[in-house]
């Protein structure tokens, strides 16, 4: 056995270690990348469909449409995919692959904002992607509006919110509360507030622009409020004119 205390041994060991671990990681990452990207693609489609109410929810639980048929369902319900860039709107059938986080970092003129128009039971849904920050890490989601700016459904997800607290933003009882809220007060954008002390746990007042906060997850809740208000606002001028 070599003398493990020698400097030369230490250096050689470190170099070999870095090479082995590095190539192992690079190999796993690159060989699995296509499968992972495909999974992420399907998930995005599922999220968009979920927001417009195309899902297989059972009592109290949020369930997506099945992965193997999501592509077909997506094509059936989503009739337009648009990209808004510097006031210009173009159609693009891969708009749903746009990473909103990256776009929000760009300058206003360079941003490509994706917007989806879905149709279900002869009704149009405008689905807007959202991105923001929770307590620990990123939160994101989709919000579906009808032509009167009434929320038809939302989907939230998060990277690392506290399980049992902030992570509950993707629970149905939280997401369902958003349905029916209005984001506009006449012509003024008001957004939706996740409010503590709303005293309305059953969400009986649908149109007050407030939903009941999650206990113990104040910062995540504020993050959701900020996320909705900041991203949806970007779309308002365009939605106004898209209305048929």
């Amino acid at each position: 056995m070599a003398n493990t205390e020698k400097n030369s041994y230490t250096v050689i060991f470190a170099v070999v270690m870095v090479l082995v671990v590095g190539s192992l990681l690079a190999f796993t990452a690159s060989s699995l990348k296509p499968t992972i990207t495909k999974n992420e693609k399907f998930e995005k489609q599922q999220n968009i469909l979920y927001a417009m109410g195309v899902n297989e929810n059972v009592e109290g639980e949020a369930i997506f449409v099945p992965t193997d048929s999501v592509q077909a369902i997506f094509n059936k319900y989503i009739k337009e995919q648009l990209i808004i860039q510097n006031g210009k709107i173009t159609k693009d059938s891969s708009a749903y692959l746009i990473d909103l986080k990256g776009q929000l970092k760009k300058d206003m003129e360079d941003r490509e904002l994706p917007l989806f128009i879905g149709e279900k039971d002869k009704k149009d849904y405008y689905i807007i992607p959202m991105y923001g920050k929770g307590l620990w890490d990123a939160i994101w989601g989709f919000i579906a509006l009808d032509e009167n700016y009434v929320v038809q459904g939302v989907y939230f997800d998060h990277k690392g919110e506290t399980p049992g607290l902030g992570a509950n933003i993707k629970q149905r009882y939280f997401m369902d509360d958003f349905t029916g809220e209005e984001i506009m007060n006449d012509t003024k954008f008001t957004g939706i507030t996740v409010a503590k002390g709303n005293n309305d746990p059953l969400n009986e007042r649908k149109d007050d622009g407030k939903v009941d906060a999650l206990a113990g997850a104040t910062i995540t809740g504020n993050g959701v409020t900020a996320m909705i208000n900041s991203t949806v606002k970007l779309y308002i001028p365009y939605l106004k004119d898209l209305k048929i």
Partner: peptide, 25 residues
């Protein structure tokens, strides 16, 4: 919080110039 999220990325008040391109759509 909203301000913090939006200001670094520029102002949001593009409504006025938006008329033209939307006609295109």
């Amino acid at each position: 919080a909203t301000k913090k999220l939006t200001t670094p990325q520029g102002e949001v008040s593009v409504q006025d110039d938006a008329d033209e391109p939307i006609a295109e759509v």
